[in-house]
């Protein structure tokens, strides 16, 4: 009860706190650059990512080809820029799908409780017991490797985490009197769940989403590396690493550059996610 008193003011200032957080600023700059790269790839990339150059294969970085050429003589820098499109698109769409579906299911489980909650929580626990990558692999293997199926597979692997988070937050919210007030006023369960519970747990879901976005992008790259990603010749970060991996002894740089791209993306997203988490935690020192 007394904790509830402090939540109100702290929550409203969440975004004010977030704005001044250096981690969030740094992460946002990194991510903004990535998004611009992805959106304007056709104009930013110096070459067509699939065009084979006449220069030597596996060439070292040069003034003409900043990150060198791959085994087919394609410009690695252009391919990484185009690869950002796939990685970000798959990551964002899969995470948003998981956020929406998982939160809705979790809110229903937490709000109604009882048998509904037991079934949903049971299935969630089973899904969570699979390592995320194994699950993604299985799904892509069953569904087939296309961009839509990869998005779906990654979304399904992320859903249980959102269900669990939304369920827990809803359980905590249910203890608050305004839920009972809504019922006493004759509001429908749908209205209470999605007009009153959902906005109040949104902060936590968004924080979780920013952290899962990094995981989703990593999963996409891993699937591509294993060969279950978006099929070639489409440029994907995982795919470029895979091709570079085959020529590791000839020119290791081919695998290093796309790995660095993934690393920078992970750092950017995690900076935002951790920063947001600190900003939403009313007890965190500021």
């Amino acid at each position: 009860m007394s904790a509830a008193t402090t939540v109100g003011p702290a929550r409203v200032s969440t975004w004010t706190r977030a704005r001044g957080n250096p981690a969030i600023i740094a992460g946002s700059i990194i991510c903004l650059i990535l998004v611009i790269m992805a959106l304007f790839a056709p104009w930013i990339a110096p070459y067509d990512p699939n065009k084979q150059m006449l220069g030597p294969q596996l060439a070292d970085p040069s003034r003409a080809h900043w990150l060198g050429l791959d085994s087919f003589g394609r410009d690695v820098f252009s391919r990484i820029i185009w690869g950002a499109r796939i990685s970000l698109w798959v990551g964002v769409v899969a995470t948003v799908m998981a956020m929406i579906a998982g939160s809705a299911i979790g809110i229903v489980a937490g709000y109604f409780g009882g048998a509904i909650d037991r079934v949903i929580s049971g299935v969630t626990d089973i899904l969570l017991s699979f390592p995320q990558l194994v699950m993604g692999l299985l799904l892509v293997a069953v569904l087939g490797a296309s961009i839509g199926n990869i998005i779906l597979a990654i979304a399904i692997t992320a859903v249980p985490a959102f269900i669990r988070l939304a369920r827990g937050s809803t359980l905590a919210m249910r203890e608050r009197d305004f839920i009972d007030a809504g019922r006493a006023l004759g509001f429908s369960d749908m209205r209470i769940m999605f007009a009153h519970v959902a906005p109040n747990i949104l902060d936590e879901i968004i924080v979780m989403g920013s952290l899962w976005l990094a995981t989703a992008i990593r999963t996409e790259s891993t699937l591509a590396f294993i060969g279950l990603g978006v099929p070639p010749p489409t440029a994907t970060w995982g795919g470029i690493i895979r091709e570079g991996f085959e020529y590791l002894n000839d020119n290791y740089l081919l695998a290093v550059f796309p790995s660095l791209a993934i690393l920078i993306t992970m750092i950017g997203l995690n900076l935002i996610g951790d920063g947001l988490r600190d900003a939403t935690d009313p007890r965190a020192p500021q």
Partner: peptide, 9 residues
């Protein structure tokens, strides 16, 4: 508890 009785959002 009036703090808990109103939707903070």
């Amino acid at each position: 508890d009036p703090a808990s009785a109103l939707d903070p959002r």
